[in-house]
């Protein structure tokens, strides 16, 4: 579906249709899914396919409203207004992607409310103006409802304004294609990496905070492309980032040996 020159994304469900429909209707979109499952890539691919510029903001807990909307700067004793990324997207009609929105403070995200309902307006009180969003403006936020949700959650009033698209790790056949394409490995290597990833994802209570994401599998594949041994690559890119616990590390090493180890005689 996506443009041949655009970022590589393989749709799994009907997420592309939902995105397009929400985009045409001017509805904000909430992307949910575990770390490294392709949320950001999906937005990039959709922005390219829809021909809109993409403005990405990585949210953090120090992000203020001024960081999003804009602020006055000093210039030789005079002040000059500089638009923030959100204001720029509103003016230009771009897709504004707020990555990991729960990381931002809740008082910051409130600025999104008038933008994310029927008004589609951004009030800028420091300028004393209210901007109407240009056609083509679309607000996309992402959030990882896994481990963090205990600590932080989206305000209900924020999330109720969104159209939610739940993404998850792709099924094995798709993930193999993705790993092979992104890492440039042969399908056989990709398949074995994906099988390892799938096995790690089946470990629920093993003390892993996160599981092996598509992203780490691609990283392992890329290391293989650099000439690294498959097992060493998986150890470095998959097992290492997952845990510091020595015995879990040892267990993962055994799994890597079993799934990626020297080809069996059979």
């Amino acid at each position: 579906m996506s443009d041949t020159t655009g970022p590589y994304y393989v749709p799994v469900g009907h997420e592309e249709q939902v995105f397009r429909a929400a985009f045409r209707q001017g509805l904000p979109i909430l992307l949910k899914g575990p770390t490294g499952c392709g949320k950001t890539r999906f937005v990039e691919a959709m922005a390219a396919a829809l021909g809109r510029p993409l403005i990405t903001v990585a949210c953090h807990d120090d992000l203020t409203t001024a960081d999003l909307v804009g602020r006055y700067l000093l210039q030789g004793g005079d002040t000059r207004w500089v638009d923030g990324p959100l204001t720029r997207a509103v003016r230009e009609g771009a897709i504004c992607y707020l990555d990991e929105i729960v990381e931002a403070r809740q008082d910051t995200t409130v600025v999104l409310h008038p933008l994310s309902d029927h008004r589609r307006q951004l009030p800028i009180d420091r300028l004393g103006v209210t901007l109407d969003a240009a056609p083509g403006f679309c607000l996309v936020v992402s959030y990882n409802p896994g481990y963090q949700s205990v600590l932080k959650d989206l305000k209900d009033s924020t999330r109720q304004r969104m159209v939610a698209i739940a993404l998850d790790f792709p099924p094995p056949d798709v993930e193999e294609k993705v790993v092979a394409h992104e890492a440039g490995t042969d399908p056989e290597t990709a398949a074995r990496l994906v099988q390892l990833g799938q096995a790690i994802r089946r470990l629920e209570a093993a003390g892993l905070r996160e599981v092996a994401s598509t992203r780490v599998l691609i990283a392992a594949g890329r290391l293989v492309g650099e000439g690294l041994d498959l097992r060493a690559a998986a150890q470095a890119a998959v097992a290492g980032p997952l845990t510091d616990d020595p015995s879990v590390t040892a267990g993962l090493a055994r799994m890597i040996d079993a799934y990626l180890g020297g080809d069996a005689e059979s």
Partner: peptide
């Protein structure tokens, strides 16, 4: 290498903690 390190592998295949 001790066998208890295979616990993760067993858990992954059995799909429960083993």
């Amino acid at each position: 290498m001790t066998v208890d390190q295979l616990g993760l592998l067993a858990s992954a295949i059995a799909e429960r903690t083993v």
